[in-house]
Design a protein around this nucleic acid. Sequence first.
DNA 1: AAAAAAC
Length: 497
Amino acid sequence: MADTVEKVPTVEASSSSAEASSISGEKTEPTTVEKKKWGDVEDDDEEDAKNAISELNSLSIEEEEKRESVLEEPEDANIKAVTSGDTPYTSASRFEDLNLSPELMKGLYVEMKFEKPSKIQAISLPMIMTPPHKHLIAQAHNGSGKTTCFVLGMLSRVDPTLREPQALCICPTRELANQNMEVLQKMGKFTGITAEVAVPETNRGVNIAKRAPVSAQVVIGTPGTLKKWMSFKKLGLNHLKILVFDEADHMLATDGFRDDSLKIMKDIERVNPNFQVLLFSATFNETVKDFVARTVKDPNQLFVKREDLALDSVKQYKVICPREENKIEVIKDQIMELGDIGQTIIFVRTKASANKVHKALAEMGYDVTSVHGSMTEVDRDKIVKEFKDCLTQVLIATDVIARGFDQQRVNLVVNYNLPTKYETGEPDYEVYLHRVGRAGRFGRKGAVFNLLLDGSRDREVMEKIEKYFGAVVKEIKSWNSEKEYKGALKEAGLLEE
DNA sequence: AAAAAAC
């Protein structure tokens, strides 16, 4: 449990209201109640939240103007910031504002080809990098550049002359660990900083007990392997300064990786009480949010209102299919025959469905691939790489890649099954949002087709999702009308008029 | 049940 981590109940600690200040400049009322509810939609003052971003102390009028000229910014990036303690933070409108090493700057401009920080980057990076390096809970839209925040955060805090692990990043899947490592390698190309991935099977055949201790300065991995390395004393914790949880809500959810995550945090804290924790995700439901806020002491917090979370650039549709078999027909006749509208991910609920849909489409002669957790690591890596290299156009997947998977050419997401909670059959709102977020990376256009089965709970589930996010999900009235699908894709901006 | 991973 959170016993050692949680030395001081965070809610109280961070809200000793004399200290608590908001960089959004809004009224800092007695915060005990308010802070506990950060992001709690019902209680938010609409106007405050709307204006929060423009009131950020350094996001003044000139920043407003810039925002308009930058297409990749989600228009409604209403990120609300609450700082703890009295450290003033100035939002970084340029990477130059961050005192980065020349090597790191070169990585950003030359390798990453970035021009300026995105909204979440502008706000979070100063919080991450400024002493006393407070913990950070950061929520931001899918595809808005969270990875850059924590990768840059890790790189900027590593001492390149010290050959010891100094930064650790924990991810829910091997795919995400690999992806984050690629970003880190690219961004850190000129820094000489070393990094290693900790996922199963990478060191096959090597006896863990016999391998040398990790000397890499940044380690990115999945919980099991990290725990294993730690228990074999192969991952030194003495010099760890920063611990990052990617998809943090999932990493700290009871039905996620909570126990593993807490154990790792505890182990690090034992040898190094002053390490910094960064928690990043696009979603934090109320339950997780409460827990997370109690888990790290005195954090800075960034959050987005639920209604502002759906991506405006991605249009959502639903189709009622009379029979299960019709779903395959829809994919075949309406999607596979479209020609070049970019890449597509088809999400299914189970591994068995993934295999079934894959087989059905393959038998009709379509070139599709699929990925799920029962495949060998080698196959998983291969399928994902092919898709990322654009060698394949249509990928059928379980929720293994629902979160974080970043492939900018994905324009179309198909929910073959809606995401629901196993125990209750209730919608899994977070997973829905993450799936949708696989399209529309960095403000690109995209479309989602939700395939509902007539006579099932799907309609109800869909309605609840729409209501939860305040999202518009238009219905394709006749499931087999080519005209309607084309109309939808034109509306979404994926097809020419 | 998806997923990670380990004994």
